[in-house]
Amino acid sequence: MAGIFGKQAAAAALFGCSLISAFIISTFEALAAELKVMSTVALTPALDELKLGFESNGNRLTIVYSTIAELKKRIDAGETADVIMLSRPVLDELARQGKVTEGSIVNIGMSYVAVGVRAGAPLPDISTAEKLKAALLATRSISYADPAKGGASGVYIAKVIDRLGIAEEMKPKTTLVPNAQAGELVARGEVEMGVAQASEIAAVPGTQVVGPLPGDLNSSIIFAIGAGSTSQSPSAAKALIELMTSPAALDVMKSKGMDPP
């Protein structure tokens, strides 16, 4: 019986892969192009996987990953891209400025600022503000994105720590990272606790998401995709947007810790 179920599962997986391949072929045939993409680091795990499908028919993606604040700064300074993936409010602002094509913006996922620990470690109780405060004070070490570099989750958790009144106590045991490396430090055992977007933590093998910050301390962010208004390959840019909003892509996003938008 187990062998039958195993064969059925394998057949279902093969059928799913066939559907994804068929979607990619039908969507991107004759659209081979080189596209520059600017994307928030929160989408790195999903986009790195989906990139392989997009490039399977001769397309090429050059992806620039960074924090939302840093990418917005570069775009404001004149840098351009064929496709841009940032938070929805920032993309809407860029559309108003004429830097993203009006009407091209689509939501692709949602994530929240989360606490993460090493896989198998006891899960701290962060269900209330007071319990989160106690967990932060009890942890031996913590890591999150450097607020000075504009990482959204880093800026946010720094404000939460200040609001809880424990900023001075946390400084000696805090390791700041440039982007989304907090989960990696947790997985390697270099810090006990990491705070980042849930999708960033979930994508790192050896980590587990404890959960979102409690109550009104919680913060979620909607990520979206849009076409750069100066793109010389608008058809290919549209095809990439269609892939990123397809059911197959949503499944990949979910597997990487991203919630539906």
Rank of each mutant, 00 (worst) to 15 (best):
F5P: 09
G6Y: 03
A13V: 00
C17G: 14
C17P: 06
C17L: 10
I20S: 12
S21V: 15
I25S: 08
I25C: 06
S26F: 12
T27L: 14
L31C: 12
A32H: 09
E34V: 11
E34W: 09
E34S: 15
K36D: 05
V37F: 08
V41T: 12
V41W: 10
L47M: 11
G53T: 04
G58E: 10
R60H: 11
T62E: 15
E70T: 08
E70Y: 05
K72R: 14
R74H: 09
R74L: 11
R74Q: 14
I75W: 06
E79F: 05
L86R: 02
L86M: 09
S87T: 13
D92V: 00
D92E: 13
R96T: 05
V100W: 02
I105E: 04
N107T: 01
A114N: 05
A119F: 10
P124M: 01
P124R: 01
S127R: 02
E130S: 09
L132G: 01
L136I: 02
S143A: 12
D146K: 04
A152T: 02
G154D: 07
Y156F: 04
A158S: 09
L164I: 12
E168V: 08
E168F: 00
E169W: 02
E169Q: 10
M170A: 03
K173N: 00
K173D: 00
V177C: 04
A180H: 08
Q181S: 08
A187Y: 05
M193L: 13
M193N: 06
V195G: 04
V195S: 07
A198P: 03
A198H: 05
E200L: 07
I201K: 04
A202H: 12
A203H: 11
D216H: 12
N218S: 15
S219V: 10
S219H: 13
S220W: 13
G226S: 04
Q232K: 12
A237K: 08
A239M: 10
L243F: 15
P247C: 14
A248R: 11
L250P: 00
D251I: 15
M253W: 15
S255V: 04
K256T: 13
G257W: 14
G257F: 14
M258L: 15
D259T: 13
